[in-house]
Design a protein around this nucleic acid. Structure first.
Lengths: 220, 220
DNA sequence: GTCTATAGTAAGATAGAC
DNA sequence: GTCTATCTTACTATAGAC
């Protein structure tokens, strides 16, 4: 791959007057920093994907991004910080997409909890395909120590939401319902993994549909 | 915790004649080496569990086991070797237990594929509870780089077996069947995680039974 | 097989100029 | 905010006596 290498060539537009080397206009003055973060993030994603988190070195991320170690630490505080940032990005997008799908369906007059749940699940899975590069990284399960707890706790939260969504009323929830919800959530997660590694959009879609059938069968 | 610390006190029974400091009888001469391996394994399990694989240091394993670094490398070749050994142990036990349960049920005259499958699943889950200390480590998902592939490929193998078991005849298997099998296996895995972190045997049993119900519903 | 002592190395992290 | 240069730590792995 080795994209975005030329970025470092700069040296033409800085030294306006010293410190935060921005351009003249106020609104654009963070553009440079954003580009830096972006370059760091995308290089980190590549390297983590290629070598696995543990074997990835700061050095290689620096090389591929063309950004310096100093900047890396300035923005993300280190290797783990990059990983977490990547994770937050993706899961924010997934959550937003799912939430939006559910509320859109609601606005469409849909009231059946299971149908709403499936709408959310389908949106989530679609993001897994669209952003499969990132999804593969996390669904694969390796990360900084403590990251599995991070993922785990987000999953718990999601399970709780799904449990609530599925029972319509907001009440107790026995063990059976909890386990069911856990199972549903797990299935979606695993499906996401499978979809992120699918070889074509057609295959991904096929899996999504099959999984939705299973989810319906389970939730009913 | 800090058990098995006194082991190192020895120095009384060695120096029989130099090399493999064994006792006189032939059959017992590996007892010492076995004890060494055992101490290393159990210390490693503790440390991995406490700190997570990545943050675990050889040093602490050596401390807690009372065994030297040299011996550690002699037997396991390093940190990753210990992890793998622990994993092989547990999964061998799980597989054996499941296989045995299935064949016992068969011998009992049971022929229904789903019932047989459930028997295996139940046995697997029981081991997750009995050996929850170890199970927690692996089901948590952190390990040496490449270990998730190791787990993954074992899972694939298991899925294939289950697919075969479930369809009775050994034939094709369409996408729908593959996905179903994947889902079943995933659910069992996740259930194992939940069981390994359950707080009492009663809770574990409750989860096992609920999961079996769900599996039956799914497999049918 | 088991131990002690030591080597080697790599990687994450910091300091401070611009 | 960005960069270069450097540090320091800590951990794996080996050598070689018993």
């Amino acid at each position: 791959m080795r994209t975005s290498r030329a970025r470092r060539a700069g040296g033409a537009d800085e030294t306006e007057n010293g410190a935060a080397g921005g351009t003249v206009t106020g609104g654009r003055q963070w553009a440079r920093a954003d580009a830096t973060r972006q370059a760091l993030l995308s290089a980190a994603l590549e390297v983590f994907a290629d070598r696995g988190y543990a074997d990835a070195g700061i050095a290689e991320i620096v090389e591929r991004s063309g950004i310096s170690v100093g900047s890396l630490y300035h923005h993300y505080g280190g290797k783990a910080g990059l990983y977490v940032a990547l994770w937050e990005d993706l899961s924010a997008e997934q959550e937003a997409s799912a939430a939006q799908a559910v509320s859109a369906a609601r606005k469409d007059g849909e009231a059946d909890p299971i149908t709403l749940f499936i709408a959310g699940a389908r949106a989530y899975l679609r993001v897994c395909w669209e952003r499969r590069d990132a999804a593969r990284l996390f669904l694969g399960g390796e990360g900084p120590s403590g990251s599995s707890l991070m993922r785990r706790s987000r999953a718990q939260h999601w399970i709780a939401q799904n449990t609530k969504l599925l029972r319509g009323t907001g009440e107790p929830a026995g063990r059976a319902e909890q386990v069911l919800s856990l199972v549903l959530t797990t299935v979606i997660g695993e499906a996401g993994r499978e979809i992120a590694t699918a070889e074509s959009e057609a295959e991904a879609t096929e899996i999504i549909e099959e999984v939705c059938r299973i989810l319906i069968r389970l939730a009913r």
